[in-house]
């Protein structure tokens, strides 16, 4: 799949923002006044910049409001509804903390659950697609939610939770890569099933329908980034999990936490880039490609 920068930035930043909101909603940390204002500003900037970034991916963003209507069937619509619900609930909860020094615990808890549900809905946009076997697995939502929790804990200064979720995210990431590498074969789609011609013999794409490229190839048969996949996996794992864990182990200061956060975000961006670049869509089979 084409690793569009707008989608990579959207999923990483909004994941972080909603992860931070989930911890703030639980009162971790419980902050009031201007300190609370700082935390909520960071969380809202991340979440809203992420959502705005996703709008760049649309062909007709002026109709984006219509995306709130199909929550019964569409994960993308559910994500839109849940994200706005989270932002509204947390705005009331945050407003009470900032301006009235009052903690509305129940509202915060609801906001936390909504924030995590938003990240889950984001992950299911990809996890639901049978056409991309690498994504169509429990590892997709598990990894998205855990990474969001790890990043959220890191930004919320919850060291113990950060370490725990980072380690779990690292393990899930390795499992996702290992299982993901065999998913396409397991799904069972081949050039023979795609064309139905397997009963006659082995199928080879003899001539493409067009001399140039097209939307399908640009969007779904993108394999430019796969060449350095193994190197990028190592870099991503080091930056996303190992380096932040070591930094926090060395000591919890503003410097180490800031460095850990920068490293974690860079690693997560690399991981998310691979998530798209390595994903193979079954439509490639019609073109004799993966």
């Amino acid at each position: 799949m084409h690793p569009a920068p707008s989608i990579i930035i959207f999923t990483v930043l909004s994941g972080l923002g909603f992860g931070l909101l989930a911890f703030l909603g639980l009162g971790m940390p419980t902050v009031f006044g201007s300190v609370a204002f700082g935390y909520f500003t960071i969380a809202y900037l991340l979440a809203v910049v992420g959502l705005a970034s996703s709008a760049f991916h649309l062909g007709n963003p002026q109709r984006a409001l219509k995306a709130f209507t199909q929550w019964r069937s569409s994960w993308l619509s559910r994500e839109a509804c849940l994200s706005v619900a989270t932002l509204v609930v947390m705005a009331i909860y945050g407003g009470a903390l900032v301006f009235f020094n009052t903690k509305l615990s129940t509202l915060g808890l609801i906001g936390s659950v909504l924030a995590l549900a938003t990240v889950f809905a984001t992950s299911m946009i990809y996890g639901q697609l049978k056409t991309v076997p690498r994504w169509n697995s429990w590892t997709t939502p598990a990894l998205f939610v855990t990474l969001s929790l790890a990043g959220g804990a890191l930004l919320a200064g919850q060291v113990v939770f950060t370490l725990a979720f980072l380690v779990v995210a690292g393990i899930l990431q390795v499992i996702a890569w290992m299982l993901g590498d065999g998913r396409f074969e397991q799904a069972g789609s081949t050039q023979e099933t795609a064309t139905g011609l397997g009963a006659i013999g082995t199928v080879r794409h003899f001539e493409a329908p067009h001399t140039g490229t097209n939307y399908l190839l640009r969007e779904m048969v993108h394999h430019v980034g796969r060449k350095h996949a193994q190197t990028l996996r190592v870099i991503s794992l080091i930056l996303m999990v190992i380096l932040p864990v070591i930094l926090l182990w060395l000591g919890v200061t503003y410097v180490t936490v800031a460095l850990a956060a920068i490293s974690h975000i860079a690693g997560t961006l690399a991981s998310r880039w691979l998530f798209f670049a390595e994903a193979e869509h079954v439509v490639g089979l019609y073109y004799g490609q993966r």
């Binding site: 799949m1 991916h57 649309l58 062909g59 007709n60 984006a64 969007e219 079954v282 439509v283």
Partner: peptide
């Protein structure tokens, strides 16, 4: 008139039957 051009339907189709029009931004 309702299509926002997100492209998710083209991703969901195994057959490559949907193409986003690059001029109109609709599927």
């Amino acid at each position: 008139t309702d299509c926002i051009g997100c492209g998710l339907c083209a991703w969901a189709c195994p057959y490559g039957a949907r193409e986003m029009d690059q001029a109109a931004g609709v599927m």
